[in-house]
Design a protein around this nucleic acid. Sequence first.
DNA 1: GCGACAG
DNA 2: ATCTTGTCGC
Length: 224
Amino acid sequence: MPEISLHHAHPWDVPPKEAVEIQRQLAPLVREAPLDFEAVRTVAGLDVSVRDDRVRAAVVVYDVRAREVVEHAIWEGPTPFPYVPGLLSFREVPAILPALERLRQRPDVYMLDAQGRAHPRRFGLACHLGVLLDAPALGVAKSILVGRHAPLAEPKGSAQPLVHKDETVGLALRTRERVKPVYVSVGHRITLRDAGRLALGLAEKYKLPQPTHLAHRLSYRGSL
DNA sequence: GCGACAG
DNA sequence: ATCTTGTCGC
């Protein structure tokens, strides 16, 4: 079992003010690059649920060719940080990392139930995890943190850029007809275009792509 | 100063 | 995120 090596590690138990400073320091490290789909066999779906003062992180490793879950893991622990808009990663990453350590294999791509660059400082949870792991990552959120977009057409696959302060930070993407869209954004080592393609391609049965949908189920119910 | 605000 | 049954519509 390969050990997880973190890039640019830093403390998590810090006051909000310092957390913001850490984000500003790491944001420039985010890289956008084409995703080599030929080399992608597995996509990890990640999600964290909260129960009283406990958090439960769940990871599902989804084989994109076989279209099935090949491995999954859970980790539970005390809630380390309150929910503060813009600082979600400081609440969830400390639980996600130990969950990832319980996997036997390293996923090729990480898909988060959160924002990537569509964040006030361009450093949402998907960016944070991507930079720490130095691996391809993308965010697929159910609602907007920052930015606006034009109305979407009806068909599945319709999309509109999500713009914040004159900058395209994400994509409003309709993954199912007549269903509210999801918000895709770059986490790390992927382009917005490829992130959109991946999210749409994995949205087989539900609004959310399979990896994220299943991870949400696993963290919420405790089983698949 | 007043709203908005991933999960 | 979480608390929760039925119900309307494709």
